[in-house]
Nucleic acid binder design. Sequence first.
DNA 1: TTCAATTACTACTTAAAGGTAGAATTTAAA
DNA 2: TTTAAATTCTACCTTTAAGTAGTAATTGAA
Lengths: 158, 158
Amino acid sequence: MVELIFIFKEWLYNFVKEGVLMQLYNTSQYAIRVLNFIANHSDNRLYSAKELSEVLNIPYKFLTKIMGILVKTGFISSIQGREGGYELNKPASEIKLIDILNTFNDDTDNESCILGIGICDSLNKCALHDQWMEPKSLMRKMFEETTLNNLTCKDCKL
Amino acid sequence: MVELIFIFKEWLYNFVKEGVLMQLYNTSQYAIRVLNFIANHSDNRLYSAKELSEVLNIPYKFLTKIMGILVKTGFISSIQGREGGYELNKPASEIKLIDILNTFNDDTDNESCILGIGICDSLNKCALHDQWMEPKSLMRKMFEETTLNNLTCKDCKL
DNA sequence: TTCAATTACTACTTAAAGGTAGAATTTAAA
DNA sequence: TTTAAATTCTACCTTTAAGTAGTAATTGAA
């Protein structure tokens, strides 16, 4: 019954306009999911774009575009040709979430203002500066300190 | 000297690609700034779009569009014609930031997933769920509990 | 009554994220 | 050697947020 309710909620969710309170880019989300999938599979083998696209339910053509960026920026290396695919280029413990976000411009320097008024610091605040400080720093800390091997999670959604 | 450095930083900032780690829509930012400005000015008078646009440095035409939405959704009321303008429709203490964000779809239900995989809760987690819980709830709490009269701030940037 | 300052409305343009198409290149297996 | 499965590259299309343009409607002051 609980299972049924969940399936219904999932289905219903497709019709609900998705809000974006402080969300990541789709590209960042995809990149994190792909890298996490490769990193946290014990078998040391290559993963093809086709397989990743199917398992993670990411549009194939869009995925290959993202994979190209991840190769160029050194997160993964690729083997071309038949039986080819992708593998991590460095240990999972050395890949921070913040680095992935930075790759897709999905980051901001620590002083940029939540209300969009240039630079915000203790001397030049926007009206929301004080209230925003704590949630912001916690969030940044999370992205800066979490690496792919902190994400190991049995039975997590992919 | 400190002042000079700040001006330089502000100027430099215009050339830096602005990142968007968990940012608000421009519309939301503008709306918060406008409502905050009207709410936290002691003189009980009407504010024209022209004045708001100049003081807050928001494109006039874009501002009037946003003001129209704020009127329709009941945050402010408008007086048309010469000497007309806008004023708050209810006490500042009754306007929560989260309500402003909701108006511009800049919000998400509490269960939506940071990695974009439908619904996330303790039974169906994404790989980042546990790490994201605390920063997220702090952030939501801030937007839900902060009202316009909590924002009173002398010498704050407008 | 005229006029200028204002809001309100409709439609369009621009910029950037999200996503797609197709063909070239690479390479191991058959 | 051929072929099929893979990455790579370039160019395009779609969607949405952001911003602009022009005009109609309203109304108080001169």
